[in-house]
Simulated assay, not measured.
Amino acid sequence: MMKNTLYIPFLLLSAGLCAQTALYNTGNLRIHDGGEMGFHTDLINDGSFDENQGLAGFYSTDSRSINGSLPPTFQDVEFLTQTGTFLNNPVNVSNNANFISGDVITIPAQPGITLNFLDTAFPSGENNASKVNGYASVSGQQDFTFPVGDSEQLRQLSLNSEGINNLAKAAYFFEDPNSPSEFPAFSTNSRANGINEISTSEFWRLEGSVPSSVQLTWNNRSDIASLSEDVEEIVVVGWSKITNQWEMLGGPASVGDLINGVAISGSFIPDDYEVLTFGAFGEPRDFLDLENYFVSPNGDGINDFLEIPELALSPNNHMMIFDRQGSKVFEKTNYTNEFNGLSNQNNFVINREGGLPSGVYFYIVSLDDLNLEFQGFLYLAND
């Protein structure tokens, strides 16, 4: 919660028979280094408000809105609004957007209106009760996890690109792609050979011109069991703009169970596809399972690190570890037994030094020298 807040007086504006209270900026407003500005009213920005170095906060027991002809740029911004902060024009973030309570809500029919993260910016605190309900975007970054969802749940999309994105944007829709609210129908009966089922529960919209892979997670309302009883058959699929059908987007075998899990695509160009969701192979895929491992980093010299002997056969490898909700907690290229229960991902900053909580985790590892991929489970005893 922001302290020592600077309370800004507002102007009473009238529009026809309706009146609203708002801070109306038509000049050159700026938050200086170390400064803090609290918005307890709406913001209408028709002037310069893009050289900020401090913290801006939007607070309300109801809702707040950001309007105007020019997009403000905040260094640090936090959202604490009971029924949401509505964006009616784009908003840029140059450092951190902290989600405390209440969604940041954009207009699905206007994908140009986004909460946009600039080249070093990142989200924090995103959760089911506070996230971007609508479009989030990123400018000048190669890898990014979009803090998007709907009114009920956070349903992130992680983007790993082969180069810097000038602009990429994403949104989540808890809708049947056969009858979406903002798009023409994407018939789940129109699919490439080899795809047996397509999700009718949810989909993501992703825009971007750089070849990339994505990571999507499923949970209980994704209804993965309706696609396949074998989670290794779950794949990321996209609706091709060229063929007008669902196509598989490659990637390693998915990991998890029928309630929680993660699927990773191969490389594709997001702008070639209208939307993304989960599908299932019609035939079993040939992936190899390694053992399930036990990691207990208590310093006794036994199982203190995740050690996978097979990796010695392939010095060029790639290890990823996920929690039961599908959040990536560890990633390492050319893994040599470094994982000891600590996360190296920015989405795990709470009690980082204390380590990840005990429980079951999924891992995916590729042996690039041998062109093999493996997946399995590990149990972390971090007490």
Rank of each mutant, 00 (worst) to 15 (best):
D286K: 12
D230G: 03
L311E: 04
P252V: 10
E310V: 14
F287C: 11
F294T: 05
D271N: 15
G251I: 09
A312S: 14
G299F: 09
K241H: 12
E274D: 06
W246S: 02
M320F: 05
I269Q: 05
I321R: 08
I302Q: 14
I302R: 14
P252K: 13
V236Q: 07
T277V: 07
N220V: 14
V275P: 00
S265L: 09
L306S: 00
Y335V: 04
V262F: 06
V262I: 12
L306V: 02
M248H: 03
D223P: 00
N334H: 07
D304G: 02
E307G: 03
A253Y: 03
G279D: 02
G279S: 07
E307F: 13
E291F: 11
S296K: 14
D289V: 06
D300M: 13
R285S: 04
E291N: 15
S314A: 10
T333Q: 11
R285A: 04
F305C: 05
R221K: 07
L306A: 02
T277I: 08
S267T: 12
F278M: 07
P252S: 15
G251P: 00
G238P: 00
S327H: 09
N317M: 05
E291M: 14
P309H: 13
G250I: 06
L227D: 04
N298E: 12
G266N: 08
G326T: 03
G256F: 14
